[in-house]
Design a protein around this nucleic acid. Structure first.
Lengths: 119, 119
DNA sequence: CCGATTCATAGATGTTCGTCTATGATGAGT
DNA sequence: ACTCATCATAGACGAACATCTATGAATCGG
């Protein structure tokens, strides 16, 4: 509760704000901070989304469109779109519609921040 | 599937085996590897469990018993026990019953491995 | 041996989540 | 203008999950 009132419509705030809040061996991490971190981690804690991230990272220019991702993961196009949206909302992917296709690429800083928070 | 057939009863295999499988910018991560990683990440991707880990890390000798954790997270004792079990099954916590109490402490290597896999 | 304490397990319940089908929106080419 | 891609949204459905209450198992102190 407290802060998560926005029901279904996912929020765009990246959740891994700065790297300030949780230094390695510091304060016991209050509920709010824990929920923020968990929100980002939940976005990554799914096999399909891990595959998508991995595929995008390995793609030619570090970016991929939906139609390139559907077949490798073996799921329907709407499902893949859904997963990509989750990752974009978590701030882990960048979304750039270009003509007919929509290109997705990693957001390096957010990724970096995540790894630091796990330290 | 391949390895995750054991329905409800959670497996004890740590899931973040060695650090071998996924070097930073390498192969696109097949389904099995993705599921392994996701299993571990899912264990961490919960606000309560993040708090528990944080509390244990900050505890006097790096270890804490259930009764020390119940009040800070504001949940029932069985619920806390359940979360601790999830973390133990993920290989992230060590469980050591000692007399009346059961002590939980972090498994550093597993934690380290997780962070490397996110690189 | 008994009562008290700590922890785990079992079962129930409401919510979240991953997936699908169906459909709408947008852009490209002829 | 029409048609054909590509992608997103909406709604539905089943599985997984977080939590609770109730109870069982084990240990310690009189």
């Amino acid at each position: 509760m407290t802060a998560s009132g926005t029901t279904t419509h996912v929020v765009v705030e990246p959740a891994v704000r700065s790297c300030a809040s949780s230094a390695p061996t510091e304060a016991p991490l209050d509920r709010a901070a824990a929920e923020d971190l968990a929100k980002t981690l939940k976005a990554v804690a799914d096999p399909t989304r891990l595959q998508l991230l991995s595929l995008i990272r390995a793609a030619p220019a570090g970016e991929a469109c939906v139609c390139d991702l559907t077949e490798p993961v073996g799921l329907s196009q709407p499902t893949v779109s859904h997963h990509l949206k989750v990752l974009v909302n978590a701030g882990l992917l960048r979304r750039e519609p270009r003509g007919t296709w929509t290109w997705y690429s990693l957001v390096a800083e957010q990724w970096e921040g995540l790894r630091n928070l796990l330290a």
